[in-house]
Design a protein around this nucleic acid. Structure first.
Lengths: 183, 183
DNA sequence: TATTAGATAGAACGATTGATCTACTGCCGA
DNA sequence: TCGGCAGTAGATCAATCGTTCTATCTAATA
């Protein structure tokens, strides 16, 4: 039989779900209820709501997701990059899609001193590095600049699809990614 | 002498400032204080905070701003479109830059029934139409699709620059816009 | 068996939220 | 001069926020 995860894990899972679906302004009560965890445990493990949010962002491992999509696409850097936009088309057309968790947190947490900003920055830097490595392998003349272009495309798709999913921004972005990759 | 604007105008101005700088979750008290307006006037003119927010989005006239930038760039559709990204480079590198007001509202207001979503959608649709008209004049083979690409670029720049302004996403996007426009 | 750490349940705190209310003031037109 | 309207000032409301607290229970360890 599968043992139930501990309170810490249950809190992270619930917070991941709820902060994505309802934003980081979800009440602590809702998180506690879904996690089925005592109030005290939250403050014991994470020090407070902010600590929980930071840990959610730090462990959401979206970069691993991107890596997985690319690895599934094979070895050719061109295929690997384009596969990301194919996956974005899938994601952005799902009913549960609510945009990029990190962009949403960045725009919602207007206090510049909030500890979450560092995690958000780290994630986006990581995504840039991921694309830079791929473009370098692809023999791109300016991998850094090309990677900037790709991350702008990704953020653009995720931001735009929240309001206009029927516009299929991922398809529009995929065509631009092809141009960035060259032929 | 210049007469002081009425309470309604002062409320809109204050709400425009504060909801951009601090997000739509700013307290009513802060708006009332900056507008120097009685509490009752807010509910008299807008029915409540939601009504005020909707009116701010409806009258922010960002589309007029885009139009102005394009008109200042002359007659050539190519110059006019690229001028938008030059302007984005200026905007995104200013200290007061806080991203796209509409994207931020969309991601912050997680209630799908909030009346603001209609205004947000209307704005993004309008931007798409603006680009479609320009690409049509430019003789683009697929103006609708090309316009989708441009709005994805704009949203990408505005979303990405909040977290990584030093990456100058507008410059990366401008290069892609050139590719979209063809040569 | 006694001890201790971790978890639970739930009351309670102070602060803040958006909204409603009464009472008062100034102005303009009939 | 009177009536009505728009605006102001501020008390007040119920709800919710994140946090802290006491008290109790459980399970593993010494």
């Amino acid at each position: 039989m599968t043992t139930r995860p501990g309170p810490r894990e249950r809190l992270l899972d619930a917070a991941r779900d709820l902060t994505y679906a309802q934003g980081v302004h979800v009440g602590v009560d809702a998180i506690l209820k879904q996690a089925d965890v005592a109030r005290r445990s939250l403050y014991q493990h994470f020090g407070g709501k902010d600590g929980l949010i930071v840990e959610v962002l730090r462990t959401s491992a979206s970069l691993t997701g991107y890596r997985q999509v690319m690895d599934d696409a094979g070895d050719d850097p061109r295929d690997r990059v384009l596969a990301v936009f194919d996956e974005l088309e899938r994601i952005t057309t799902q009913p549960s899609f609510r945009g990029c968790r990190y962009t949403a947190a960045e725009l919602t947490l207007t206090d510049p001193d909030h500890p979450a900003h560092a995690e958000i920055r780290a994630f986006k830097d990581g995504l840039h590095e991921l694309f830079t490595a791929e473009l370098t392998r692809h023999g791109h003349p300016a991998p850094g600049f090309g990677a900037e272009q790709l991350v702008v495309l990704v953020d653009g798709v995720l931001a735009h699809a929240v309001t206009r999913p029927d516009a299929h921004p991922a398809l529009a972005a995929r065509a631009m990614a092809e141009l960035v990759l060259g032929r």
